[in-house]
């Protein structure tokens, strides 16, 4: 059932177009990487602050609010390039453990980022330089760990 869906993906017109083109896959990959840079930056600015390092002295809520458009923009760029990359080699992905690790961690990372982390980061604090409570640090660390797994497993798709 699932396997036939993946076969259908690979035989889709976009999947075949990317697979048959010499340049499409590398270019999509390169843009995917640029998205990774922006996503990394948008996430790190807030997570480092939650961990009590990086842009300390800036209110977390403000950092999170101002990082948000870049976070969402880079996620859109990653999905827009990631989907055609996947379509071009869907069957390989189906038999690839790293692919499944990435795809099962990704929804967890997304949900965590837009629910728990968002709520904690935007909570009103007494002072801008609030050193950050233990909960902040845990949220920052969990976010970093989740996105690290997504990125590392994503890179490993090409090796396994």
């Amino acid at each position: 059932m699932i396997e036939s869906f993946f076969r259908w993906c690979e035989s889709s017109s976009i999947g075949r177009a990317v697979a048959e083109s010499v340049w499409a896959f590398p270019i999509l990959e390169a843009i995917h990487l640029i998205g990774l840079c922006l996503l990394g930056g948008a996430i790190l600015v807030v997570d480092l602050r939650l961990l009590g390092v990086g842009l300390t002295g800036q209110p977390v809520a403000q950092l999170a609010r101002q990082a948000r458009p870049w976070l969402i923009g880079s996620l859109v760029a990653m999905v827009a390039t990631g989907v055609p990359l996947f379509l071009s080699e869907a069957i390989k992905a189906y038999y690839n453990t790293s692919f499944w690790v990435k795809m099962s961690t990704l929804p967890v990372a997304l949900t965590f980022t837009f629910t728990v982390r968002e709520r904690v980061a935007r909570r009103e604090r007494a002072a801008a330089d609030d050193p950050g409570k233990a909960a902040d640090r845990v949220v920052g660390a969990v976010s970093l760990a989740l996105w690290f797994v997504v990125a590392a497993a994503g890179r490993w798709i090409g090796f396994s």
């Binding site: 990487l33 990774l36 840079c37 922006l38 996503l39 990394g40 930056g41 948008a42 996430i43 790190l44 600015v45 842009l55 800036q58 403000q62 950092l63 101002q66 990082a67 458009p69 870049w70 690290f148 990125a151 590392a152 890179r155």
Partner: peptide, 25 residues
Amino acid sequence: LALGLFVGTTAMMDLRLLGIAFPTV
């Protein structure tokens, strides 16, 4: 993966310099 750290933080700073991100920082 270090791209996320190196280019990521560089890009955030560059966007700030351009005046299109983190206006209050």
